[in-house]
Amino acid sequence: MCGRYSLSKSKIDLEERFQAEMLSDFKPRYNIAPTQLVPVITSDSPKGFSFFYWGITPDFGQNKPVAQKLINAKAETVHEKVSFKSSFQSRRCLVPADGFFEWKKLGKKTKIPYRFTLRDESLFSFAGIWEEYEGLNGEIQHTFLILTTTPNSVVEEVHDRMPVILSRENEKKWLDKYSNETELLALLKPASPDLMQSYTVSPLVNSVQNDSPGIIRRTSPMDQHGNYTLFG
């Protein structure tokens, strides 16, 4: 799954990279977590950033609080699942990011957090789908989830799933309303391991309350007690 990611670049960086306008203020984010309001680019409005909540309510689960929603969908079955099929067909989005986090288990209690980025640490996007639903107070809310796939050789050292990372060319295909199902499914593959890198980060990332630059800095792996380990 993908349960945490970063978007540490500036508003100007985002606008230049995605050729889209951001009307709202944006501050770099270092530890984005489910339920939070973050920028996406939708197939309905590809020239501008929209701010949606991370977490989506299936059609059969209307009016659930955001915290109880799903955050990921498997790329292999997104076109078949009743809860996701409609979004996959007509409500696709790009989820801008510059890294994501996973935790490597070392024994029963110890987990080491890793950050995964492109080798040049540049911006990229996850393949996402979005939904519109009526909230508890009657207001219309917009939410999204991130599609995941099997891991490449970089990620599989830590986790058995990874988010779908789209190339620039494939971003356009993903947002294109005229792309057919076969074309779309062909995009949902693991990113080339040659394009990626990983490194250990501070246990600060474990808490969603922490959102500072220190979270994405390279840090020697430590166990839950703060002791250095032999694992890299």
Score class of each variant (00 low, 15 high):
Q36P: 02
E16W: 04
K27E: 07
D44N: 15
F60H: 15
F52L: 09
P34D: 00
S45A: 14
N31G: 01
S50G: 10
R17Q: 10
A20T: 02
N31C: 02
P28Q: 03
K47V: 04
S10H: 11
D25W: 06
F18D: 02
V40N: 00
P39V: 09
N31A: 07
P28T: 09
P46E: 02
V38M: 09
I32M: 08
A33F: 04
S24W: 14
D59H: 13
D59F: 14
V38I: 13
I32C: 06
N31I: 11
D13Q: 09
V38H: 00
F51W: 08
P34M: 05
L37C: 13
S43A: 14
R29W: 07
Q36E: 07
F49M: 06
F60Q: 07
P34V: 10
R29E: 12
S45D: 06
G48H: 12
T42D: 02
M22I: 15
E21F: 07
I32G: 04
T57S: 11
S24L: 15
L23M: 13
F26C: 07
F49A: 08
F60R: 13
Q36N: 06
P34G: 04
Q36R: 12
F60A: 10
I41K: 02
T35L: 02
R29G: 03
S45R: 15
F51P: 03
F60L: 14
Y53Q: 09
Y30V: 00
G55F: 00
T42H: 04
G61I: 08
G55P: 04
T57Y: 00
P39T: 12
R17N: 05
S50Y: 06
S45L: 12
